[in-house]
Design a protein around this nucleic acid. Structure first.
Lengths: 374, 374
DNA sequence: TTGTAGGCGTTATCAC
DNA sequence: GTGATAACGCCTACAA
């Protein structure tokens, strides 16, 4: 367990009887104008000695670290974690290491994370933490230093965005509830100050209006993305609007809180209250009842973000327009497969999703798919 | 968005009218045998120019990177993610950056992650990925290069372990079910090849034997830590042992699968089947019904791991014995608060947990606590 | 085909 | 108090 003395390229060279510069040349595979025989000797020596290049030294001269920074949120929302983990894996597939900093729940330390990354001279950074949407200091640092890509809007702009169409998401979910015959549709939202919340709310209102229903602020309850907050918001909603027959909730994590509150209030899902959510985290299908939700391609988002970042790092122009990935409604049981006979509401129009499709999923099919993955 | 030209200490020095060595001295706060006035001038210049030290260059000469490596699992198990995120946050609090590598679901790329970390000359590494328990190559690399700490056993030993007493965990959960009057207690386990599984199974058997009940292999169903796998195992179990009235499941993630399968089988929880799990992930309380579970201090485990690692890095002796954190039974509704009147089974003995306590939690109390945290 | 010189940005050890 | 010299491990010319 003692700290290992790393062998340097000079030792390899000495062993092979060449200068270390020659060794460097063959070990880096570049333009090897070296006899095949000496090359082999060098490679053999390197192997024998267990040579591992010191990327620190290499970075110093090359002025690039092959490392990207990742600002991640704490682990409370599984959906976001999914995106950041996928980003890390994608970066590594592309030959880059990843330096992460997770925002702490209380502290507004986004800037200190970014500074750590800058000091370590990462080649670029990905912001995958909703909280930084409100952090001007982070935004300034990101703009000032090197390339960056964000999974949420950055104040002041200037940082390419990768995400999905949140308005579409809200619309899809709400339209589906309308098409099932619901007209008293409440919504448990994320924090109002987040763009994603406002966009999904707009989508929700779009769908209502399109069906001739008037949006009503009394049907909207703000929560904080946590199950606890969503449970509280749901209790409020049920008290204020006991007649509601459906709820659109802005995230699967919050859907758990909604289900919990509904259960405590003895309202059966979907018989008495239908529920549609957003995200489609891996275990959404295992909630009781299985959750209908608009799938947001979180993992793909993370992967796309590193692709965009790596492209910018490579010198390509910074994308002007956000990169939006398609969302898709996944129908399971929490919204009821058939219209809930609550009111004579007009059936909503068919789904005319732009870049979205609708998928209906049977229990058996899902299970099979997910088993396969293992 | 253009890549910023970083200002070097030489520019700062020039600006302040001193040599760069002097600037280095005052900027690093070391033994400042420099006039207060020049010092101030240097600091001012650094600030004005937005000087950020190049830690790459610093690392090269100091042969330490103030960076630790973290081998993490993919995000499928929330519990494990909790530990690795906490570890990262703790490391940063201690002034260290963290380079992560998440194991990909399929690939056995643990070793390649470790090599990436080694090449980047991290000061130490934390293995927080159950999968590496079976990876000899990772174990060898960890032993060969620098300090390491693991959250699970490492083949061949030599790497300090931080975790919890799994046998105790299994015993606590099972004893509680026994104390509620159950005698036909099934268990949905993790993968048999993992130590944690075997330990929890031993705890389960300990409790049964102590209550005069004979362990029965027919009551044991292996799963793969996923909700899907646990659901399948549960269906098997219900088919083979329709008389069972209680289940001990080895993780909260799997508990979701168990609840799902129970729901599909129309078995009410806890009225017909009582359930106790392990982990106490943050949303365990929001499952339907709220999950009784043995709390494993995941976040604390991650924090402890970095403390141990940092101590070893600082030159203190490598701990011989594993560092085990206490577990605690959290009673919620999934096991039923009162004895299920199923069989005339002898009530189990009172809990004589070694380092564990039992906590009973009301809905109200939990909610209050969790709300506070925000 | 191989070796030499120079430098990446910093810190450390001495002289001055 | 301050600055010159050397070194960390490597890479990229360019010279031999």
């Amino acid at each position: 367990m003692a700290r290992r003395r790393y062998v340097s390229i000079k030792e390899v060279a000495a062993r092979a009887g060449v200068s270390f510069q020659t060794a460097s040349k063959v070990l880096n595979g570049g333009d090897v104008r070296v006899s095949a025989e000496t090359a082999a000797r060098i490679v053999a020596a390197a192997e024998r000695l267990g040579y591992r290049p010191n990327t620190i030294a290499r970075s110093l001269v090359q002025r690039t670290t092959a490392t990207i920074g990742l600002i991640a949120s704490d682990a409370t929302d599984v959906a976001i974690t999914l995106a950041s983990v996928a980003a890390e894996q994608a970066a590594r597939r592309h030959g880059h290491a990843v330096l992460v900093g997770h925002l702490a729940p209380g502290g507004a330390d986004g800037a200190s994370i970014v500074r750590t990354l800058i000091d370590r001279r990462v080649d670029g950074v990905i912001a995958a933490a909703p909280d930084v949407e409100e952090d001007n200091e982070v935004a300034d640092l990101l703009r000032a230093y090197g390339p960056a890509v964000s999974l949420q809007a950055i104040p002041g702009g200037g940082v390419p965005l990768v995400g999905s169409n949140h308005r579409e998401t809200g619309r899809l979910a709400t339209e589906h509830l309308i098409s099932l015959g619901h007209s008293a549709i409440g919504t448990v939202t994320g924090l109002f100050r987040r763009r994603v919340t406002r966009s999904r709310l707009h989508g929700y209102e779009d769908a209502l209006r399109q069906a001739g229903l008037a949006p009503d602020d009394g049907l909207v309850a703000e929560a904080d993305w946590t199950p606890a907050g969503a449970a509280a918001a749901t209790r409020d909603l049920l008290e204020r609007q006991p007649q509601l027959t459906a709820i659109f909730v802005h995230s699967d994590m919050m859907a758990m809180g909604v289900l919990s509150a509904l259960h405590e209030a003895r309202r059966r899902v979907p018989a008495e209250v239908a529920l549609v959510s957003c995200d489609d985290i891996p275990f959404a299908r295992y909630l009781v009842p299985p959750l209908s939700t608009v799938r947001v391609p979180l993992a793909e988002t993370g992967e796309r973000a590193v692709e965009v970042l790596l492209r910018v790092i490579a010198g390509q122009p910074v994308p002007e327009k956000p990169s939006l990935l398609p969302v898709e409604l996944i129908v399971r049981e929490s919204c009821g497969g058939t219209p809930a006979s609550t009111s004579p509401a007009r059936a909503g129009p068919a789904h005319q999703a732009g870049q979205a499709r609708q998928a209906t999923e049977t229990t058996e099919a899902t299970e099979a798919t997910e088993q396969e993955k293992r």
